[in-house]
Nucleic acid binder design. Structure first.
Lengths: 258, 258
DNA sequence: ACAAAAGTGTTCTATGTACACCCATGT
DNA sequence: ACATGGGTGTACATAGAACACTTTTGT
């Protein structure tokens, strides 16, 4: 693709040279990221940023930023944004969905390509940089009105979110819930994916599915889905120092690991 | 979202008025569509268009076009494009993926939001309009080198496709294969979704999965997944005039239907 | 002793797959 | 008669959910 011009006719080269990309009115393009973590209470959390400028000043939003045209893919833009916002590098992102309603941003037409990232909390550094006034983790909660988000005693609802971000987050959670049964997503949320117990993993599943799971059954599907497939390895060691029977330790063998 | 300005402070309104969207360099945005159909040989087909202009002149491409900024969402753009290309209206589209490599188009940075459409062949009108030199249905074939596409005696491979469209099509097929087991996608490909036999449906599944299925088992899962869920209704009629035992006729009860 | 988690076993049901077999129709 | 699809039934392996029970640690 990069070398397309090499195999071109003279005629076509001329066409490419004279092509004016500014001929048509274009929308802006951003890359946004839904960042999930597990907090100290073993609850699923999302990273939100309080907007310092218009529009939606003082509303909470998921991190994101404009794509640098001609220089980066939307995934690269999301990675750059993730790094600027959290100091995290080399985190695999999965594309969630692209939102493109003409009036989802009051300034202008903005097309947002949204990605999901799953990160262990300990790796998050909060950088108070750029246009971000404030960044915080919010627990994901459910009640009769649907979703809401809690950070300590502060509880925010979809009305406190900027743009269509509440829809975006809703979709991200739905997808995560579906994926977790057949993709090794949960391992990315472990404190230490190279040494963990089945119980620790179960807590992640329970928090994402928002219901408690049967120990015996969870165990069995762990063996079938991950251990016997080589996704996970038995370290042959036991946890120690906990207030209960020592547990077998496992290691996630996926991409890069730690 | 539309009425965001109504609840705005004077200060913010001024900001919005003075905001200049042209400040940043923007990529172009297109909406492309992978259109699947079943042909007269009960084989899965895709609609391709021979490009009349540069770049990739005389290469085959999936239909698509630029998004009209400020006027339409990418899905609306895809619908517009689908109508211009095939005369089809009110076909549900599902978003496939967004491709955004900076050099996937030699002219400039083009972000493409790609959709999938499933349409019965009889509804397709080929319009030789616009920049389309030629539109044709290609059978989807598999061999050692992977995918290829056949229309009569003409066989084309991924090298004959424009841009990264071979990757796009590959992904679309993979997704269709996965979806077909739990989403009622196959019904959209029936000649007549309001009166069909189980066998007709089975042909669609076989073509998409590219392997033959057991009659008895297909039947059972048809009953479980669709009939008992009310997705499909038994018409209480039998097919007639075929060279075999008359078959029960069913009706798809999904969105809009016919 | 008790809480907390680790770990085993059984039972029931649903699903996926393989296969054997008979039925009705047009040619 | 026979090809073509329509349709039924049986058998086996695996997956998921419910639940009962034992084990080992730290406090």
């Amino acid at each position: 693709m990069t070398d397309y011009r090499k195999n071109c006719s003279k005629e076509e080269l001329e066409f490419l040279e004279s092509y004016d990309p500014a001929r048509y009115e274009k929308p802006s393009v951003t890359a946004d990221i839904v960042i999930f973590t597990m907090d100290e209470d073993d609850e699923l959390c999302i990273l939100l940023i309080k907007r310092g400028g218009f529009p939606y000043r003082d509303h909470w939003a998921i991190p994101g930023g404009f794509l640098e045209a001609g220089k980066e893919s939307s995934e690269d833009a999301a990675k750059r944004e993730l790094y600027e916002e959290t100091g995290l590098k080399d985190i695999p992102l999965t594309q969630l969905y692209t939102f493109s309603d003409p009036d989802r941003d009051p300034r202008m037409h903005v097309v947002s390509v949204v990605y999901t990232a799953l990160v262990p909390k300990m790796k998050l550094e909060f950088k108070a940089g750029d246009d971000a006034k404030d960044a915080k983790l919010f627990k994901i909660r459910y009640d009769i009105d649907g979703l809401n988000f809690a950070s300590g005693s502060e509880i925010i609802t979809k009305e406190d979110l900027a743009f269509d971000h509440s829809e975006i987050i809703k979709l991200a959670i739905r997808r995560l819930r579906n994926r977790i049964d057949y993709e090794p997503d949960a391992f990315s949320l472990l404190k230490d994916s190279s040494s963990f117990t089945i119980y620790e993993l179960k807590l992640i599943y329970e928090s994402i599915k928002n219901k408690s799971l049967d120990t015996a059954n969870f165990r069995k599907s762990f063996m079938r889905n991950w251990l016997s497939e080589g996704v996970v390895r038995d370290r042959g060691e036991k946890s120690e120092g906990a207030g209960h029977k020592p547990a077998e330790l496992y290691e996630f063998m996926g991409k890069g690991g730690d």
